[in-house]
């Protein structure tokens, strides 16, 4: 939204900043990618090998051949999608309620939401595990969907609430007068206006679910239902169980992250900037 203007100095600073951003973000990841295509013997060498003697895809092949990595991808996708959906819906409704509808005692609800955000997930592990055992939901993907949605609700609710509040009240008043129902206002006016916030929140929640480890590890022990992080933790050396298979792990990290990057690429195109300008006219 900002035009940084012309001027060589400005442009130079900008290019420098962008380069810095790229180096920062991609650097260590680039190292992972490089490692994933190096032959095993060259991985932990000193001095460091930057250009491998030969590029090999054996780690990627091993990933899908020896372990059911494709299955892990599917599991992660299912769990993350459903959890994100659940979280976004509940969060949107709650944020709308807290932001625009006059609820008695809304500070109390905010404190509750805040309090939930402060709970360290590790202490939820054992009680939730017992709960899941009781519901016979161990090795059931639902055992992950509900906790993930709940853990991200405070975040979704508070972020969306902050963005919803920015929408001018008169706009909503006008809509009411025009005959919109409250739910209609939410879905037909507020949602389009908050597209950046919604997309952002959804992406961040999705990534959280995708990479969550402790709950996934504890609630799912059958290989067929494992998610990616748990799958990676189960990778072992080719020749010995003590060996940490760097090549394999790097390949897994790269493969596991690619869907997320693609997702972001898709989503961010949907954030069309002109939306906000359009709605405010008239």
């Amino acid at each position: 939204m900002q035009d940084l203007g012309s001027g060589m100095l400005r442009k130079g600073c900008f290019i420098l900043a962008t380069a810095g951003l790229l180096l920062f973000s991609v650097g260590p990841f680039g190292w992972e990618v490089l490692t994933s295509i190096k032959p095993s013997s060259e991985i932990a060498q000193s001095p460091v090998v930057y250009v491998p003697s030969r590029v090999t895809f054996e780690h990627y092949v091993a990933l899908f051949a020896r372990r059911d990595f494709g299955g892990y991808l599917v599991n992660s996708a299912v769990v993350s999608s459903l959890a994100t959906l659940l979280c976004m819906i509940a969060g949107m409704l709650a944020a709308y309620a807290l932001a625009k509808l006059n609820i008695p005692g809304s500070p109390l609800f905010l404190v509750i939401v805040l309090a939930v955000a402060l709970v360290p997930p590790i202490i939820l592990l054992i009680p939730l595990y017992e709960m899941m055992r009781w519901a016979d939901w161990i090795n059931h993907r639902g055992a992950l969907v509900l906790p993930y949605a709940a853990l991200n609700l405070p975040f979704a609710t508070l972020v969306l609430r902050a963005f919803f509040r920015q929408i001018p009240q008169d706009l909503l008043e006008a809509a009411r007068i025009d005959g919109f129902t409250r739910v209609g206002i939410l879905f037909k006016i507020i949602v389009p206006l908050s597209a950046p916030a919604l997309a952002t929140t959804a992406i961040l929640v999705f990534v959280f679910c995708w990479n969550e480890f402790i709950f996934a590890l504890t609630f799912i022990t059958t290989d067929a239902y494992k998610t990616i992080p748990v799958g990676i933790a189960g990778l072992s050396g080719v020749t010995s169980p003590y060996e940490i298979p760097w090549g394999l792990i790097s390949a897994a990290a790269v493969t596991g992250t690619l869907p997320l990057i693609v997702l972001v690429l898709i989503f961010q195109r949907r954030i069309v900037q002109g939306l906000t300008a359009g709605a405010l006219k008239g």
Partner: peptide, 26 residues
């Protein structure tokens, strides 16, 4: 930086998210 208009902005935004997208343990 990401808010400004420049070519390949979409790709750079996606790349900027990479550190967050990688699993912590790995």
């Amino acid at each position: 930086v990401l808010n400004a208009s420049f070519p390949a902005r979409g790709a750079i935004r996606a790349m900027a998210l990479i550190p967050w997208a990688l699993p912590t343990a790995v």
